[in-house]
């Protein structure tokens, strides 16, 4: 009986998490990010939807000499509780949008070394729902 109860609990937990993720409607955040990169002259490359307490990691090949911008958006106008950390191929941190206690709405990154980079989107507070949009210019 105990095993049955435990199994049920696991299923409920999985379904609960799935339902939480499903509630994260990122469309409006995406539009906000696109509006941020556009006036700066960046061309859209990718949208990164992020939901769930653990956040999410994406990767991209950044090229030497190219300027990238990752704009961030969540429920808060000041992006509180949602930030991005970029790591190089050796998983060494390059930059974070959470600096000196402040959450910045975007990172501008001029790449000096071609290679694969990892973008880890994290939450410090709920709701765990946000978007990052990557743009580039030469």
């Amino acid at each position: 009986m105990k095993i049955f109860a435990l199994n049920c609990l696991i299923i409920v937990f999985i379904l609960f998490n799935y339902s939480l993720s499903a509630q994260c409607d990122t469309d409006k955040y995406t539009d906000k990010c696109i509006k941020r990169i556009q006036p700066e002259g960046y061309t859209f490359l990718k949208t990164y939807p992020v939901s769930g307490e653990k956040g999410k990691e994406y990767s991209y090949i950044f090229s030497h000499g190219t300027k990238y911008m990752v704009a961030l958006s969540n429920h808060d106008a000041q992006n509180k509780g949602f930030y991005l950390t970029i790591y190089d191929s050796n998983k060494k941190q390059v930059v974070s949008s959470h600096l000196d206690g402040k959450y910045f709405p975007a990172i501008q990154f001029t790449c000096k070394s071609t290679g694969i980079y990892y973008m880890r989107f994290s939450f410090d507070a709920s709701p765990h729902c946000g978007v990052g949009v990557l743009g580039m210019k030469r």
Binding site: D88, V94, L99, F104, I107, Q108, T110
Partner: peptide
């Protein structure tokens, strides 16, 4: 108002 870096 944005974070800017040149990377490694």
């Amino acid at each position: 108002g944005l974070i800017t870096t040149t990377g490694n």
